[in-house]
């Protein structure tokens, strides 16, 4: 595998992760509650702390998944279960299956059937995150809210992290660091853009309206991109087409 392939897959995974709506939704809620009772400067600081929390947790979680893939000898187990899969492509096989399953789930279940942008999150989790966003008043709280939002999104982002880990685990340490950085930067891109848009005068209402208008597109983008990436990994790294 060459660097171009690694960078493409990691960027693709990062952009799919960026299309998930938990982290941007919570950032918007944070803006909503903070702009109502704080001065703009404080709101900006809270948003920056939140984005740092998301980036830090993404970095940590991806590093943990890479370590898990490096440590677990999945190839032997998968080869014993499915003899058609070689020992060396066991990790890719697991990643591809996870991507395909997550893609189908994203297409069917990602948004609740309502006019707004309510997500698949369990009601108590959504209520907890919304309440935390409302009560967040210090940078530390905003940072930990960022950490929690990544945990809340893990059921969908895990497949992407497992794929990035499978690709990185076959390469030297330098490339692992490169994938960690690229995945994190691509994933936090919508948060940084959202912050920039609000700073340049867009209101929370404009952004929420845009989210509602484009929610079907975002759902199909995530689902189809997950399935495509899964098929790509299956075809080129498991079946060796």
């Amino acid at each position: 595998m060459n660097v171009f392939m690694l960078v493409s897959v990691v960027l693709m995974a990062g952009l799919i992760n960026a299309s998930f709506q938990v982290a941007p939704g919570i950032l918007l809620l944070l803006y909503h509650s903070s702009l109502g009772c704080n001065i703009t400067g404080k709101t900006r600081a809270l948003a920056s702390s939140y984005i740092s929390g998301v980036a830090y947790m993404l970095l940590l979680t991806l590093a943990a998944v890479i370590l898990l893939v490096l440590g677990a000898n999945l190839g032997v187990l998968i080869h014993s279960l499915v003899p058609a899969v070689s020992v060396s492509s066991g990790n890719f096989f697991v990643s591809a299956i996870l991507l395909l399953l997550t893609g189908v789930v994203a297409l069917i279940l990602y948004y609740r059937p309502s006019r707004s942008t309510e997500l698949w999150l369990a009601r108590p989790v959504a209520r907890f995150l919304a309440r935390r966003a409302e009560l967040t008043n210090s940078n530390t709280e905003a940072f930990s809210l960022g950490l929690m939002s990544v945990v809340g999104e893990l059921p969908f982002s895990f497949a992407l992290m497992a794929t990035v880990a499978s690709f990185s685990a076959t390469l030297p340490l330098g490339y692992i660091c490169l994938s960690l950085a690229l995945f994190t930067i691509a994933s936090i891109l919508p948060l940084v853009l959202l912050r920039a848009f609000i700073r340049r005068g867009k209101s929370v209402i404009d952004i929420q309206r845009w989210r509602v208008k484009e929610k079907t597109f975002l759902k199909y983008f995530s689902g189809i991109a997950l399935i495509s990436l899964g098929l790509f990994v299956l075809a080129f790294f498991v079946l060796g087409v």
Binding site: G25, I26, E118, L119, A126, L129, A130, Q208
Partner: peptide, 14 residues
């Protein structure tokens, strides 16, 4: 209308 919109949607952002 914008104010009404935010009232209507504030609990359904995530």
């Amino acid at each position: 209308p914008d104010l009404a919109y935010i009232f209507e949607n504030r609990n359904f952002m995530i």
